[in-house]
Design a binder for these strands. Structure first.
Lengths: 198, 198
DNA sequence: GAGTATCTTGAATGAACATTCAAGAAAGAG
DNA sequence: CTCTTTCTTGAATGTTCATTCAAGATACTC
């Protein structure tokens, strides 16, 4: 008797991870209890521990899923179907709107978790830093491409531009948490855009 | 028999609040236990509850103390004893060095608590937002003064300059948590400075 | 020095928490 | 249909936490 094919877990891993993501974004990692997570994911404690080892493992898995989802979103914004400046502006506008919404589900899990856990957990810190660095690199490539195509004229190196842009977005997201008027956020984003693209 | 003058609390309020500040900055509000706080402050639970109502009250008091301490620091940096550009550069350099140190005691409690608690606690959010707005206003005044004295030549309004500077610092502090090379932080701060003062 | 109002102490309390585990359900193989 | 493996379930566990409170210590008034 050889048993090769056995039962699979019944839940949808992506769905579960996206529910966990929103739960973590809503209350932060520490304030999100296992009870919150069982409610959000629909999984029972045992299933979570079986699939993800523990609460921290669920966070790490959710971070991976988040990273993947945001990557796909990024590729859609920079599909090279429109002029670079238009694509960059749309991308930034989207972030500004997420900020304005004040909806925790539209925040950035990476930044949120980084701020909460960077000093507490080296592995989480490393995972997040890597994702953010990849994002920064992807932006660098976009700036570089725009320079090569002649759309972007500047003597500043592409990686400096990407870095500054990233810093601006970190700042924007924190600024948004002081609940400023939407105009203020638009103006700040616009200034960031001008600083990079003129 | 009229008893007017009674015993005072024996602890030094400022010292206690500064200890609490560092404890909160080290682990964040939620992860800092009352046990951590009794160790850090040297106070017994009962004393803390008597003086500050509860853990949250201690945070609110610590935030007030932090705000006051940072205000004094700000006044020292902008004492009008040196050219505006020098003072601004020194101020920014100081922040960059705090970022480079990776010492949680040198982080910004306001930003840290804002990121952790903004969505959870309206009163804490309001207290922090007010402090940060005051800081921004103080910066606006410095830019305005520099324009009046002819040191700063720009057609951008002072409050826009201050806002952008503040956003940059929020961004810088988050960026620092990804542990970049010190040069990168210096370069980012320099670019922020250039963008405002040219 | 006696009396009293106030502050200090830290063990006790109960709630909330992450995690475990044994019993039950389900599905593929023969 | 039966057996075995795997997954699911959720109550039980032990820990940690914020908070309380009654007993003790202290300093001021008269």
């Amino acid at each position: 008797m050889v048993y090769t094919l056995m039962r699979n877990a019944e839940f949808n891993r992506e769905k579960v991870l996206r529910s966990a993501m929103t739960a973590f974004m809503f209350k932060g990692y520490n304030k999100t209890s296992m009870q919150d997570l069982t409610k959000a994911t629909g999984l029972h404690p045992g299933s979570i521990y079986c699939a993800f080892e523990n609460k921290r493992g669920l966070l790490l898995a959710a971070l991976e899923q988040y990273k993947q989802d945001r990557n796909i979103e990024f590729q859609n914004f920079f599909a090279n179907e429109q002029p670079f400046f238009t694509e960059l502006k749309n991308y930034l506008d989207n972030i500004v709107n997420e900020c304005i919404s004040c909806d925790s589900a539209q925040a950035c899990l990476l930044i949120k978790a980084l701020n909460e856990l960077a000093e507490q957990d080296d592995e989480v810190q490393a995972s997040i830093s890597e994702s953010l660095t990849n994002w920064q690199t992807a932006l660098t490539e976009q700036f570089e491409q725009a320079k090569l195509s002649g759309e972007l004229k500047t003597n500043r190196p592409s990686d400096h531009l990407a870095r500054f842009f990233v810093m601006g977005i970190y700042g924007l997201r924190t600024f948004a948490q002081t609940h400023p008027h939407a105009d203020v956020l638009h103006q700040l984003a616009d200034q960031l855009y001008q600083d990079l693209c003129v």
